[in-house]
């Protein structure tokens, strides 16, 4: 079966996550070899994912960690809140 571009687009996410069956993967790769459009879509999606996973893109509010641990310290100090097994 000859894959067309639309078929390939449907598998881009699974392809990136390496969760397509080996045979299909081969067909996709064969298509990518000669299709610049799909290659560009794949590359751009990958790059967006790299950027999404980058800590500098989504930052935590300043002081978040400090405030969290202060709250936890108060919680831990209160014996009535101690976790129980079971």
């Amino acid at each position: 079966m000859e894959l067309n571009c639309k078929h390939v687009w449907a598998y881009i996410s699974d392809y990136i996550d390496d969760s397509v069956p080996p045979e299909l993967r081969e067909e996709i790769e064969r298509h990518l070899e000669h299709c610049e459009i799909c290659s560009a879509i794949l590359d751009s999606t990958r790059n967006i994912l790299v950027l999404t996973g980058d800590d500098r893109t989504f930052e935590l509010p300043v002081g978040y960690s400090e405030r969290l641990h202060e709250r936890l310290a108060r919680e831990l100090a209160d014996e009535t809140n101690a976790p129980t097994t079971g």
Partner: peptide, 16 residues
């Protein structure tokens, strides 16, 4: 931030 704190507090209380 409220939710994140509540999540951790709940996790602590229910750790068992």
């Amino acid at each position: 931030e409220d939710c994140a704190q509540d999540t951790m507090v709940n996790a602590y209380r229910h750790l068992g």
